[in-house]
């Protein structure tokens, strides 16, 4: 025994264990590391390394194999900012965000409020409202492609009933981005609805009961209870929709291919074409870096301005 007859006269036997080795002291860290290892390896290989590699590549010209050849400093970036095509794709991306994010959130909120009514068979409606989450980008895009079809599609048939002239939705520069946005909003609704509805269900019912006793009406409750209590959820879904909008690809690829006249050439689609059609990795990497910074800035701004107004319990 290391501690025979410990004295009780105030002399504290030191148990910081001189005989405990470094190996023993960090045992918990080692165990934790074992549990974290798979994630850490995968994150390193597929998230962190590529991020730095992308930044690195963005300063180089690259060859056909995507290997860096000549260091060009900020040339790739300068060229991008002078390129009308790139500026157009940034503009299209922001317009697309403007068209899709607010609309998705507002419509989903409306759907969630409807689905939160206590009615017979409401479960059926909830399932329908969430259904677009179960439809892939590809399936949805192909379906909407047909809906937008100028001659056979149902949309033009409907508007012609009202005497409006047929529109060539996806080929008309005025309409193409709106058409893509409509498809995207529809795709977003399922997920946004599910999240907002979940948030609604989490609000303590007694808040409504007590305010009803005070004589508050539906819209007063909506303004004073539902929206404030729901604000963390709305904030979350706004952030997610925003990031998703920045990353839109599938709709563009299937619906318009970036056209007509670059009007729907969103950033990720532009990156895809530069990187994997033209094999210009240097330029594409510079675009990725800008995209990444944009996402970062927009999310941080959102956190800064919106989160203050968010009510957390």
């Amino acid at each position: 025994m290391a501690m025979e007859n410990p004295t009780t006269t105030g002399q504290v036997p030191s148990l910081n264990m001189p005989y405990r080795t470094f190996w023993e002291k960090t045992r918990r860290f080692q165990v934790a590391l074992l549990f974290l290892l798979p994630s850490l390896i995968l994150f390193s290989v597929f998230v962190f390394y590529p991020l730095f590699r992308t930044i690195y590549l963005s300063f180089f010209l690259t060859n056909q194999k995507g290997l860096p050849t000549v260091f060009v400093g900020f040339d790739n970036f300068i060229q991008l900012f002078q390129s009308a095509d790139f500026l157009q794709s940034v503009k299209a991306t922001f317009l697309f965000i403007l068209y899709t994010v607010p609309a998705s959130v507002v419509i989903s909120l409306f759907l969630a409020l409807l689905a939160n009514e206590k009615l017979k068979g409401i479960h059926f409606f909830r399932t329908i409202f969430a259904s677009s989450l179960g439809v892939s980008v590809a399936a949805a895009s192909v379906t909407w492609l047909f809906i937008f079809n100028p001659t056979m599609g149902v949309l033009n048939r409907i508007i012609s009933l009202f005497g409006i002239q047929e529109i060539n939705w996806l080929a008309d520069p005025h309409w193409a981005l709106l058409a893509v946005s409509m498809t995207t909003i529809w795709l977003n609704l399922g997920f946004s609805f599910l999240i907002i509805f979940g948030g609604l269900q989490n609000i303590d019912q007694s808040l409504y009961e007590s305010s009803s006793i005070d004589g508050a009406g539906y819209f007063y409750q909506l303004r004073r209870i539902t929206i404030p209590m729901l604000s963390p959820t709305l904030f979350f879904i706004m952030t997610v929709s925003l990031i998703n909008a920045f990353q839109t690809f599938g709709q563009i690829d299937l619906l318009t291919g970036g056209g007509p006249g670059q009007t729907t050439n969103l950033m990720v689609y532009a990156i895809y074409k530069d990187a994997f059609v033209n094999f210009n990795f240097g330029k594409a990497s510079a675009e990725v870096v800008i995209l990444f910074l944009l996402i970062l800035i927009v999310t941080l701004l959102q956190f800064k301005f919106v989160e203050k107004k968010v009510h957390y319990q």
Binding site: M3, P13, S14
Partner: peptide, 8 residues
């Protein structure tokens, strides 16, 4: 469940 900082 908790370490003993000092003493026996």
């Amino acid at each position: 469940l908790e370490n003993i900082s000092e003493g026996v």
